[in-house]
Design a protein around this nucleic acid. Structure first.
Lengths: 143, 143
DNA sequence: TTGCGTGCAAAGGTTTTGCATGGCA
DNA sequence: TGCCATGCAAAACCTTTGCACGCAA
């Protein structure tokens, strides 16, 4: 089956590549695309966004999360060059997605493989917790 | 606000504690509860199951996942005594949830805290990848 | 010209909510 | 007795699907 390089698909891909820091929901993406250039309403329909996101997610180019509300799906572009080699950290306080450096990621993956015989998939794994900045803020608040 | 120990709530909690190995969706839980003792239909309504699961999840007694279909929520009882001290591994091939032993979990959490200043929350984190058994099967298939 | 992709609206499935009733403490 | 919890049905919500038309190659 042939895959066309349609205007909508290319716009979506560009948009995702420009917003790799935060996972976005389908509607946010559709809205973002429509506000991109001119002020005209809805340049790419939500259903097309969904269809293309599903395609990209199946191909591994996009990562699919679940939002804190437990039902909305969030999507984020995956940079293959970097993602095979490092893990991600999500701070549950500020919501940011942080990149764990390659050296530490490798160390963790090796330790788990060595001791538990489990091969971590960096593309699918996200460690949840509290980042240094937020834990510092929490502490200063408590004082 | 007072929390009553109603029959339905207690049944739910018991059921979850008896099924800690697999995450279940709300409907499965409701069905499981109704098939529990007698053959009568629906002993606990789905909405009550949802309401109680939300309460339990908020309190950290239940972990909320997202099924592979990307929309159904799955729930699993969290054993606090064990969960603060170890991480979980989910095999993407066989689907099992494995418990990483405490020593290795601590090692990983310390390494990440030491190098990335990030405090992993064991209750929320699940490492995805392939377990030893499945990777052995994959290999033997390829031969 | 072929057939994939799109937009729209409607359908689908899961989860939440409103309200009257029931039951715990 | 005072509220919280429940069940039911309806609503809300996100996502998928059907269909006719448009557009890439």
């Amino acid at each position: 089956m042939r895959v066309y390089r349609t205007k909508q698909r290319m716009l979506l891909l560009d948009y995702l590549k420009e917003n790799t820091d935060t996972p976005l929901c389908a509607e946010e993406i559709a809205r973002g695309l429509s506000e991109c250039e001119c002020g005209c309403t809805e340049r790419v329909s939500v259903s097309s966004v969904y269809r293309n996101l599903a395609l990209l997610a199946a191909g591994g180019d996009v990562r699919r999360f679940t939002a804190d509300d437990g039902r909305t799906a969030l999507y984020q572009y995956v940079d293959h060059v970097r993602c095979d080699t490092h893990l991600h950290l999500r701070c549950t306080v500020c919501g940011r997605l942080l990149h764990m450096d390659e050296e530490l990621s490798t160390r963790v993956m090796r330790a788990v493989f060595g001791s538990a015989n489990f091969m971590i998939d960096g593309k699918q794994t996200v460690l949840h917790g509290v980042c240094g900045e937020c834990s510092a803020n929490e502490q200063s608040k408590g004082e």
